[in-house]
Every structure is written in structure tokens, then in C-alpha cells.
């Protein structure tokens, strides 16, 4: 059983960052519009490929992540290259007790089911942004101006876990001619408004060493075309030299569930100073065994992904009393 000797492919968890503006807008929404309505709210998160060898990128929430208030003219254009859109759901509770009492497993499962449904219906192939989703539970204490919150980034779990054949910098995987062509193709992909914020794609390598980037759906069009080798690519927020970041998990799930492929080559696309960096980007080859039952739409796979806080699972809390104190706001508004 040589497969058992191979290491398990391990993914670096996504990390969240919440801009202060998000809490300001949430408070204002809560006070002015939502009242005690605690139904889930669709929100947007943003991320970008890792762009520095020493820090990972994060899922960022900004004030624009929340729906704009009716009184304001909305002019939020969705993504740009530094803001790739990730759909999310916010469960903001009215009390701390409800917050702690939320059935986190069920919420995570519900969010994972959306991903699973989109994989099965083919929507996630058409619009790959649907492969990454997130979930935020929160309690906004508007008397003390403190906010309790916890993120989850649902990932469908392959059972058994995918194993890793090999992983190395993309610059070593590709020939220098291919690497040059790949860099150019990636930079072009990241410059075009239509593709700049599309985080999953196919890398097609032709026998003449020319490389092009294509949308995921081209897989189903070009399958069986012997002229090219395909590598699946994704915007990797992670900076680590030996591990891919979290978004790859649901891409592998899609490949296993829909395309039934056992050996997957993947490109962890990373940048330096805003341009493709193939020394930092990784190419890996993973062996995936398609879990039994995955062909069956009704069997939703297990999901994991509650965010770690300093390596432990736990809710976070932020106090913004000093910048949100109403008396102070009155002074600045005057």
C-alpha cells in the first residue's frame, strides 16, 4: 500500500480581518433598520492572492460587506483585483445568550450545503466564486460598543483525506519557457476586469510550452483534448512554502464529485508586489479518492472550518467604545 506512506495534504486555514468600518455599519444597520430582526443577512467578504513572502492574505470584511442602508445611494461595485468577492452569511443575534446558544455545527452544515448544491448543479463551475463561502456569527452589544464574533470558512472534507505526491515552487515545476508564458498569462488574467477577481481557473499547458488561463467550465469542454495538460489554479491567500491555502479544499471537492479525477495537479497562485511570483506560487500533485456516496447529491459531506484564534477555537471580541461613543459622535457630526 504505497499510498499510505504519502503525507496527507494539509491546508492552511483562512484567517479573517474585520475593518472597523464593518462594525460601524453593522451598529447603524441594527439601530436604524434591523431592530430586533435577527434573520440571516447575506454579506460579502474580500480576499486577494498572497502578495508577500512573509504574510498570508485574509478574508477581509469592510463596511461595504454589509448591505447599504436604504437612505444611502449604493454604488458598491463588486470586485477588483485586490478585492475578490466571497459570499457569506451573517447571523447577528440579539443577546449574548443566543449568540452562545447558536448551533454552530448546523450553521456550518447549512453553509456547506450551499457549496455542495452549487457543485452538483454546476453553478460553481459557471461561477467559481461560489466555491468559497463564509459564515459569521456575531452579537453586537450596542450599550458597551463591543462585538462578539466568530468566523467559519466551510470546507467539504474528503474522506479519506487527499494525499500529496509532490509540491514545489511553480518555477521549478514548469520549464522556463512555460513559466514565462504562465507569468504573462496570470498577469493578464489579473489585469482584465472580467477575470481579475475570478479566484479559480484552469491552467492549460500546450506541447509547444505555451500556457493559457481559462475559466473552470472549459474543463468540461476540453476534456479528452490530448493537446494540453490541465492544472487547476486558485488565488492562494497563504504564504507558506509547503502548504496550499484553504480555498483549494472545495475546488478539490468539486473535481472529485463532478469530474471524478484521482490525480489532481494544482497551482497555488501567489504574487509579489502585485505581479505573478512563480517562486512563491506552488504546484502540487494530490491523489484524491472520491468518497463513496459523493455522486449522490443528497449525501452532504462533512464540513469543517470554524476559525482558530491563536491556534485555538474560540469566539473573538472587540471593543470600540472609544470610537463609537455616541457623545463623541455627536461632537464630530456637528
Amino acid at each position: 500500500m504505497e499510498e499510505e506512506k504519502r503525507p496527507i495534504l494539509q491546508f492552511a486555514p483562512f484567517q479573517s480581518v474585520v475593518d472597523e468600518g464593518f462594525w460601524h455599519r453593522l451598529s447603524s444597520l441594527k439601530l436604524n433598520e434591523l431592530g430586533i430582526d435577527d434573520s440571516p443577512i447575506p454579506i460579502s467578504g474580500f480576499y486577494a492572492p498572497c502578495s508577500h513572502p512573509q504574510v498570508s492574505n485574509h478574508l477581509t470584511l469592510l463596511s461595504e460587506s454589509l448591505p447599504s442602508e436604504a437612505s444611502e445611494k449604493s454604488s458598491t461595485s463588486h470586485g477588483n483585483r485586490n478585492r475578490c468577492w466571497v459570499p457569506g452569511t451573517l447571523y447577528n443575534t440579539n443577546t449574548l445568550e443566543t449568540y452562545h446558544g447558536l448551533d454552530k455545527q448546523a450553521l456550518l452544515k447549512a453553509e456547506a450545503k450551499k457549496i455542495w448544491d452549487d457543485i452538483h448543479s454546476g453553478k460553481a463551475v459557471e461561477d467559481s466564486t461560489l466555491l468559497s463561502r463564509f459564515l459569521l456569527i456575531s452579537y453586537a452589544d450596542l450599550k458597551k460598543w463591543s462585538f462578539h464574533y466568530w468566523f467559519a470558512f466551510p470546507a467539504l472534507v474528503l474522506e479519506p483525506a487527499a494525499t500529496l505526491n509532490d509540491i514545489k515552487p511553480a518555477s521549478q515545476w514548469f520549464s522556463s519557457k512555460e513559466a514565462e508564458s504562465l507569468s504573462a498569462a496570470c498577469n493578464e488574467w489579473r489585469q482584465m476586469t472580467a477575470t481579475a477577481d475570478v479566484p479559480f481557473f484552469l491552467v492549460s499547458v500546450k506541447s509547444d510550452s505555451s500556457v493559457s488561463l481559462r475559466p473552470l467550465k472549459d474543463w468540461e469542454l476540453c476534456d479528452g483534448d490530448g493537446q494540453q495538460v490541465f492544472v487547476v489554479g486558485f488565488y492562494d491567500p497563504c504564504h507558506l512554502p509547503n502548504n496550499p491555502g484553504w480555498p483549494l479544499r472545495n475546488l478539490l471537492a468539486l473535481i472529485a464529485a463532478r469530474w471524478n479525477i484521482n490525480k489532481v495537479r494544482f497551482l497555488c497562485y501567489r504574487e509579489n508586489r502585485g505581479f505573478a511570483d512563480l517562486g512563491l506560487s506552488l504546484v502540487g500533485e494530490a491523489l484524491v479518492s472520491v468518497p463513496t456516496g459523493w455522486r449522490d447529491h443528497d449525501c452532504v459531506p462533512t464540513a469543517v472550518g470554524w476559525e482558530l484564534n491563536r491556534s485555538k477555537k474560540g469566539s473573538r471580541c472587540i471593543s470600540l467604545a472609544k470610537t463609537m461613543d455616541p457623545t463623541r459622535l455627536v461632537v464630530t457630526a456637528a
Binding site: 491546508f11 454552530k104 472534507v157 483525506a161 479544499r249 469543517v304 477555537k313 471580541c317 472609544k322
Partner: peptide, 30 residues
């Protein structure tokens, strides 16, 4: 953030450590 003078209001993380069986034993999580 700015929590200095309200430290006692900020609950300790340990209090919430997993009351809802969130122990995800997932070998693929780094």
C-alpha cells in the same frame, strides 16, 4: 481594541472553549 479600561468586560476565551462539540478532528487542517 482600546480595551484597556474595560478588561473585565472582555470575557476570557477559555470560557467559551467549545461548549458545542466543535472539535474538528480533521487531518487535512494544518
Amino acid at each position: 481594541y482600546f480595551g484597556g479600561d474595560e478588561e473585565e468586560d472582555i470575557p476570557d476565551m477559555a470560557e467559551f472553549n467549545d461548549p458545542d462539540n466543535l472539535i474538528e478532528t480533521d487531518p487535512a487542517t494544518l
